[in-house]
Design a protein around this nucleic acid. Structure first.
Lengths: 110, 110
DNA sequence: CATTCGCGCAACTTATCGGTTGCGTTTATC
DNA sequence: GATAAACGCAACCGATAAGTTGCGCGAATG
């Protein structure tokens, strides 16, 4: 199998987003631009290596991707995983709504 | 301030969802029913106390609430936090779409 | 061609997480 | 009123997460 690590696993996606630094990274990259690691790291009061680790977590979850450009590694947001997470929450929400709807119907009939 | 711990913090919401057991708990409760802790724990191959801990994490994030009924503590899903998380992802997605749209317009004009 | 910039790799430390066990308390049941 | 069910609290433990530092390497720069 070429291209492993492509699971679209809600657990790892939510896990990746469940950290203030990583969520801020996602937020930063939500403007669609590609940024180098050092560029990204400059905003956070943290070492470059720490940011690299966070980016790897985001990448493993499919939330970001990177291209090597010269001596830089530029990261960009990958919206597929975000959409998947949103869809997951949508399903939960809809399931709940339908169940509550049935409950109300049942109570209304009584 | 009465009712502290009501923050609607995306980080803690995503963090709470970023665990297989907790996500399964949310999934289980998405049918709108209230369940006791022991009831919930019976499905997972895990001690009641472990489930209690997970439920507290979910509760701290605002994803579930509980009422004491006799000797049972019944938990139910609280959709507000889920909606908040979904809205957050929506905003990120929309921001990205708009930014990419502007980029395409710019390239198209050239 | 020496320097420096951006990065990857690896070791290490500390804190937190996920899980366990044990015990005491309250509520229901026989 | 003894027994059992459902729970909370707390101590404990191994694994992992988040951050650091140090070092070496290839790509750009003067």
């Amino acid at each position: 199998m070429v291209n492993a690590e492509r699971a679209i696993d809600p657990v790892s996606i939510f896990g990746a987003l469940g950290d203030a630094t990583r969520l801020k990274l996602v937020d930063t990259m939500s403007d669609g631009e590609s940024r180098s690691i050092s560029d990204l790291a400059s905003g956070f009061g943290m070492s470059r290596q720490a940011i690299t680790k966070h980016l790897k977590v985001l990448e493993a979850a499919g939330l970001v991707a990177n291209d090597r450009v010269g001596r830089e590694t530029q990261f960009r947001l990958e919206t597929g995983a975000i959409d998947a997470a949103r869809d997951y929450l949508d399903r939960v929400s809809r399931h709940w709504d339908e169940a509550i709807g049935r409950l109300k119907d049942f109570l209304g009939e009584g």
